[in-house]
Design a protein around this nucleic acid. Structure first.
Lengths: 343, 343
DNA sequence: AGCAGAAGAGTTACCGGTAACGCAATCAAA
DNA sequence: TTTGATTGCGTTACCGGTAACTCTTCTGCT
């Protein structure tokens, strides 16, 4: 197979602002002002500069701009737990679209629920002097916090609702989600209730939902009949095998609350493969309102969450903060329990 | 709710290379050489500089580095069709991990299968002067191609195998995937074969697989009995309703090939809901080897693809090209037909 | 000893924007 | 008409690294 080396490529000289300015017959500074749409130029000058830009095909060098003044960075760092999850994919998608509409670029990373990974991501990101960052970790290291404080840029914490955020928090109320589902399941008459979750490393928001869930049971003088926390990525597979484990270990479980819809679907399939009727023999509930839940033979009882809205709110709040506009520092993204036919 | 404004924050002065150099008693240039591990310094100097770095907590300014010399950019642009797809999520994850291990940062965008969106993403990315880009579009606009040529950076095209790439291609052989599945389905005795796909905008690789699939049918003197191409994002939902449409429109269809596993699963559920036995009444095959397929009551017949390997290969090839090392310019990522119990 | 070449380190200029400041012309109010 | 404020634009310096070059020392070798 052919082997190429690219060093023979000729790199076309880039057009600079100075060339644009010269073509327009103004100074670099005036051209800069026109392009940033800041004030201090006449309409005539504006038109002449824009014409020169079009004619020369000028592409601004954001590197130089961001470097020259720390105020003009248009870079936003975003760190999510996983890139492979449909939920976070949707949030990322929404953040990315919103930010690029507002003239910002996103630099993405994943932390796999490990505060140390988030910290090393942050170190790297800060070396790019971003205008702001969006974090999704449940907990942060001390170093992370002090870096953010020292660096002094806007920070949005997403996913979890945090009533005393570093700066701004946009998230779901996971505790309430769990509590509401707990009440619902108990209200439907189930009494021997189990939980199946999965955490690859340190606990994420599933644990917060679980505590709300347990609280709802406790309010009815119930406790979890069984609980299985796999050391794995949450997904269909983990749900399938987690259910197997629970049902083999504990008898007469009449309902299972899952950390996520994907896990609930995995569990549902396990039950079907064992000939268990849902919800007569066993009830199943998830969280997330993912697409897969809507095409199942039985509609999954779950909590539907607004990932798109979350991403959009987070991005908009961050930009507002960057621009010095007033922003609410705690924003709740809506969630809603959707009764299906599995509970 | 409280309203904050961040302009009262105090930004700690960043440590610069000059300060490190002074503390180490050397010149800026020598410190720079040590940090980049290029040659031209003694062990003693190296240690003194590193000690100063640790002591001062120096964080390099990549913005300045990339700006000062176009050779030292560590930025890679990556553009995928969607952030919400599990398949691309996995590829992104793999690319991101590999690149960050090699000292690069990724800037991600999505093009939604629209060459124009890819082009505008490229314009933005180029303004950051990246060291290389990874594209996944099936087709590119003329402007995209000429920008890449002018700019002269390494380019890796992923997802599709392209025998005459812009620079480097790392992908699956979608045609062969389709062809192999076509042969397999015909070989199992099916004759009235349909296809269900979904494209939100311009055709992606599903179309390439379909053409391989059709070719395999043609080799057996068969033609597609029916075909449904939804104008939608491929997913469970599209698979469900695409199947409904096909089966209502054409009678006696005995097998359906889906663009993706998620769609196949959607189709499978539709069939179950209508009391159709799989594969006795109707056979179902997908593509992708996604996790959901492995927990279904019946294991899905599909083509398993190595998204992780694809991402890793792409990232490694790009870095090798950036470093001027020899690279194969066409790299095939493995795919494998996995017989399940749905065909 | 004499000399070429390598190794280690410093000097200078520059990348392409933006902030801060300065200055002339224009305009509104006294 | 004078004066102070505003508008429009230019000048200068600077951001924090790196490339290219220069200048010393050391080597090792004839």
């Amino acid at each position: 197979m052919a082997v190429h080396v690219s060093d023979n490529k000729r790199k076309k000289e880039n057009i600079t602002l100075a060339q644009v300015a010269e073509a327009a017959g103004v100074s670099k500074m005036t051209a800069s002002r026109v392009l940033r749409n800041s004030s201090g130029f006449s309409t005539k000058t504006h038109d002449r500069v824009m014409q020169a830009v079009d004619q020369l095909g000028y592409v601004p060098n954001r590197l130089a701009a961001a470097f020259g003044s720390d105020k003009s960075s248009t870079l936003i760092g975003v760190c999510v737990p996983r890139l492979t999850s449909g939920m976070f994919g949707s949030v990322l998608d929404s953040i990315d679209h919103t930010l690029s509409r507002l003239g910002f670029q996103t630099m993405i990373g994943s932390h796999e629920q490990q505060p140390e990974t988030e910290q090393s991501w942050l170190t790297t990101i800060l070396s790019w002097r971003p205008a702001g960052v969006i974090l999704s970790g449940r907990t942060h290291t001390q170093t992370t916090l002090s870096m953010l404080r020292d660096y002094g840029i806007p920070v949005v914490e997403i996913w979890n609702l945090n009533t005393s955020p570093i700066d701004i928090s946009v998230g779901f109320n996971h505790y309430d989600c769990g509590h509401e589902m707990g009440r619902y399941i108990v209200g439907r008459g189930y009494r021997k209730i189990a939980y199946v979750g999965a955490e690859a490393s340190t606990p994420g928001m599933g644990m917060v939902r679980l505590s709300g869930f347990k609280q709802a049971l406790a309010a009815n003088n119930l406790d979890l009949a069984a609980q299985e926390l796999l050391i794995d990525r949450p997904g269909f597979y983990a749900g399938f095998y987690g259910t197997e484990t629970i049902l083999n270990r504990t008898s007469n479980v009449d309902s299972i609350y899952y950390q996520e819809d994907t896990m609930a679907v995995g569990g549902l399939f396990y039950c079907q493969s064992k000939g268990l009727r849902v919800p007569e023999d066993i009830a199943i509930a998830g969280w997330g309102g993912m697409e897969v839940a809507s095409v199942l033979p039985k509609r999954l009882t779950t909590t539907s969450v607004t990932t798109q809205a979350l991403g959009k709110s987070a991005a908009e709040a961050l930009v507002a903060r960057i621009r010095g506009e007033p922003v609410q520092d705690v924003i709740v993204a809506p969630t809603r329990l959707v009764p299906g036919s599995t509970v």
